[in-house]
């Protein structure tokens, strides 16, 4: 049970919890948190598995760094979208709203096409 395997198993556990949370939770922000949990779990596994006969292997380190950058960008985009969505429809979950609470502006046939 080298320390590397320990980290890998911790990573896997994190991924499991994150995935469970991602699927079960309805609130969008909670979903986002669960996503970040899975992300860090994956990065932990990558670091954990990367021990090559003793010395640290530079390649996975670089990859994990890139992965973290991408994860942050994605989370930022998600937060912006959720905020805008809440601002427009007052909904915090992805469920189809039964009644349209916010009446959109009057229907107008404009240049850029029907009000999709």
């Amino acid at each position: 049970m080298t320390s590397a395997l320990l980290y890998a198993f911790a990573g896997v556990a994190l991924c499991g919890i994150g995935l469970f949370g991602f699927l079960r939770l309805q609130h969008l922000l909670r979903k986002l948190m669960a996503f970040n949990l899975i992300g860090s779990g994956v990065f932990l596994i990558m670091v954990g598995l990367a021990q090559r006969n003793g010395q640290p292997d530079p390649v996975p380190q670089a990859l994990v760094l890139t992965g973290i950058v991408v994860a942050i960008a994605a989370t930022a985009l998600a937060v912006v979208l959720i905020r805008r969505y809440y601002h427009l429809s007052g909904q915090t979950t992805l469920a189809e709203p039964a009644a349209k609470s916010f009446r959109p502006k009057a229907r107008s046939v404009n240049r850029e096409g029907a009000p999709e």
Binding site: L77, A78, L81, Y85, L88, S89, L94, E116
Partner: peptide
């Protein structure tokens, strides 16, 4: 509008 954003979020997830 709201439904475009909902679709975008679901797509992102």
């Amino acid at each position: 509008q709201a439904d475009a954003l909902r679709a975008a979020i679901r797509y992102l997830m």
